[in-house]
Design a binder for these strands. Structure first.
Lengths: 195, 195
DNA sequence: TGAGCACCGATACATACGCATCGGTAAGAC
DNA sequence: GTCTTACCGATGCGTATGTATCGGTGCTCA
């Protein structure tokens, strides 16, 4: 058995290149040649790692989904969170990629969401990620005393975060405006459950 | 002056073809050739109506934006709306394209939103449309007694509607589930302002 | 040490795209 | 009737894409 190569790490390396390119010029700007150049490998290497382009995109989406989920979890673990209210605030702030340093991820995510509307495999990955985040939010919300329907609140929160992210990307909202709205929503949620 | 042609109606005809194709296979499936075939005109006609492809897409986005806004207005005008609460409910239901018959518009809209993240002209059109809808919502919300910040509530409502639409398209939410969440949000909004 | 095989990079290929060009056509003016 | 001219459909062109193919390379094991 001659030379062996760590395929998995190379796949991640290529996935990162895909995300960079998708951030810069949308998913349509993601070309096998450009991906190879950005990842500093040959085009043949990309083809060997992924049999087809769609396979590559599916892997890249899974990659970025994991990164986002991981960041949310890390944020929750890092700050002990005085209250569940602030914990949810932190988590949802990470998801709604409003901060400048995560804007790239937001653009990539949006590109994939649009593509998923016409590509079942991508849609499947997205559903998995959304399901994870939703159950995470639902648990946090349910923890802090008794909101009548934590599941529904979690779904609403996730949808609101996604919508706000979109509006920031389009330029209809400013990042701080989006955060204001998010904060306001959470305040209402915690005020009301006191009744 | 020899043969004359109604350019404007032809542009709308082509825009409709663009939307059909974008619904079926995303914006990347929108090809000059396919558009021409779908609109039942020659490729040359498409080129004569729009100097470039992006021009065509910009026009198509404006076209569908007008249609959506028009439908919202029509819905508001049609039903006298017993209360502002139901008026907003009707309007936002039209915007969040949850009903099956408007799912196509939702897919097209989402495709354009993603493209707008890397195309300033498209983003501009989107901003205009969002601004219209937001001010419309804000007026309706402000009308019904005194919510403290009708503008912020309108922004939140619009973002929530957009996020829910996205989640329905991806398959993370069912249409009825999305409507439930929307209804719940409106109820909270109207309950709270009674304080 | 040398033989074999898995990996590599480059190139070839068919296709499809956006855009430019061109002869033909028919409608209106005189 | 015919001449002008704005419109039409078709074809050509250069490029870029995804995929398939192929000779070279260097590690690993006998």
């Amino acid at each position: 058995m001659p030379k062996q190569v760590d395929h998995e790490s190379r796949r991640r390396q290529i996935a990162a290149a895909v995300c960079q390119l998708a951030d810069e010029s949308g998913l349509e700007g993601v070309t096998l040649r450009d991906v190879a150049a950005r990842a500093q490998v040959s085009m043949g290497a990309v083809q060997r790692c992924f049999g087809t382009k769609e396979e590559m995109l599916v892997f890249a989406l899974g990659h970025i989904g994991e990164r986002i989920t991981a960041r949310v979890s890390a944020r929750l673990a890092a700050s002990p969170a005085q209250s569940a209210r602030t914990a949810v605030g932190h988590a949802v702030t990470e998801v709604s990629l409003v901060h400048e340093e995560h804007r790239a991820e937001a653009r990539v995510w949006l590109a994939f969401v649009a593509q998923a509307a016409v590509s079942p495999p991508l849609a499947g990955i997205l559903r998995t990620n959304y399901a994870h985040l939703q159950s995470l939010f639902a648990r946090l919300i349910a923890e802090s005393s008794g909101t009548p329907a934590p599941d529904r609140a979690a779904r609403a929160l996730l949808a609101l975060a996604d919508g706000l992210t979109t509006h920031v990307l389009v330029g209809h909202l400013s990042p701080t405006g989006a955060l204001d709205i998010l904060d306001d929503h959470l305040n209402r949620l915690w005020n009301e459950q006191a009744h």
